[in-house]
Design a binder for these strands. Structure first.
Lengths: 207, 207
DNA sequence: TCGTGACTTTACCAAATGGTAAAAAAGAGA
DNA sequence: TCTCTTTTTTACCATTTGGTAAAGTCACGA
């Protein structure tokens, strides 16, 4: 899609460093305020660069956002990708759930970036949902279905299983503000959340 | 908080009608684009009124948004409020889950309005989270804990149970764009989703 | 050390956007 | 019908914001 990403961009050391700083700053700002709520000035300040300087590295606000989404999509799908057909079904699924919970705890900004974008209709995701997410989703649905058919898991709708794993795990990152109000002791909350989610899916999936 | 809501505002028929139209339009626009992404012009057009005319009814963009949030909070908490201490625990919880799924299906705009707001740190919710949500949440947590202690439910962390119910049910409204890409047949998806979620929590909660 | 290309800053600009002032129009009661 | 109030429109305005032009500054190889 974007000509900046695909044909092997050779970049100087300064370019690499500054592009990275901009994307890091943009992740901070976009994930907190959403696309429209973020300004180039905010990103510039967070990156420690001037606004025109930022526009030297990216053609515009939208390109920064699109670049971020595209670059993070890969990392975002990785935990699901790792789910292995050759492993033990329940262990594989619980491993996946654990990795997703880890991501919510360690990378809430990334989660919120996607959440903001998708809630508003994913207007800047291009075909990433169809070409990146959908094929992997379908593949893993088939895998889970095979496991169910083989009697290795309790009967379950694979698509809605994956969706409910996303829902429960990402909720802790996306709605952190709310969780913090309701459960003030956040450290204890994380341990209890982990426990709760694992128990829930274990009971659902045990054959 | 806002002087417009509390001291019994007497309004003419025209005022009532136009304020309602504005709030309806604002719900449409805000839930789709978030606060910063929405403009008074968009709201005005959706309401069929001119921008200054809208500012005759509300003091500004923020007041519209705050009014919406405050007004919808009540309806938003209602399904949980209805959960009755005197009923059968499992049936009460499943009833709650069913009502939440209904709300996600019938009122996705309201769900997304809150989702947008909370993801971005709830900067315009004032104390509504603490004064509206928290007390009810705590009360129902105690109720669920009592049920668990009485052996009427499987042992479960009440707080995380409620949170996971919110997560799974609201996900279908908030991330509808994504669900639609992954499960094209949306009608069938709703029935299967309902089924899946009920099964999940039944297995979790059955004593 | 000098020149050339890569990077940065300064000074802007046009459009969008939240909001206001005041005149005009429309209702409603006497 | 006349008058007073409520509602709506017209014409603006100041600020914010994404973006540009062009002049400077820096780094590095010859």
């Amino acid at each position: 899609m974007s000509e900046a990403t695909h044909p092997a961009p050779k970049r100087s050391r300064i370019q690499q460093r500054n592009r990275k700083r901009i994307l890091e700053a943009a992740l901070d700002v976009f994930s907190q305020h959403g696309y429209r709520g973020s300004t180039l000035d905010q990103i510039a300040e967070a990156a420690g660069l001037s606004k025109p300087n930022i526009l030297y590295y990216f053609s515009g606000k939208e390109e920064i956002h699109v670049t971020l989404l595209a670059r993070l999509m890969e990392a975002w799908l990785d935990p699901l990708e790792q789910m292995d057909a050759k492993g033990d079904p329940l262990a594989e699924l619980l491993g996946y759930i654990r990795r997703k919970m880890e991501m919510s705890r360690l990378y809430p900004r990334e989660s919120r970036l996607f959440a903001n974008e998708i809630i508003q209709g994913a207007p800047r995701m291009g075909g990433n949902l169809e070409t990146g997410l959908k094929p992997l989703f379908d593949e893993k649905c088939r895998l889970i279905q095979d496991w169910v058919d083989a009697g290795l898991l309790a009967p379950v709708d694979p698509a809605h299983l994956i969706i409910s794993i996303w829902a429960t795990t990402q909720h802790y990152a996306d709605f952190e503000t709310q969780v913090r109000v309701l459960i003030p002791d956040t450290d204890a909350a994380w341990a209890a959340a982990q426990q709760h989610v694992e128990t829930m899916f274990t009971k659902l999936l045990a054959p």
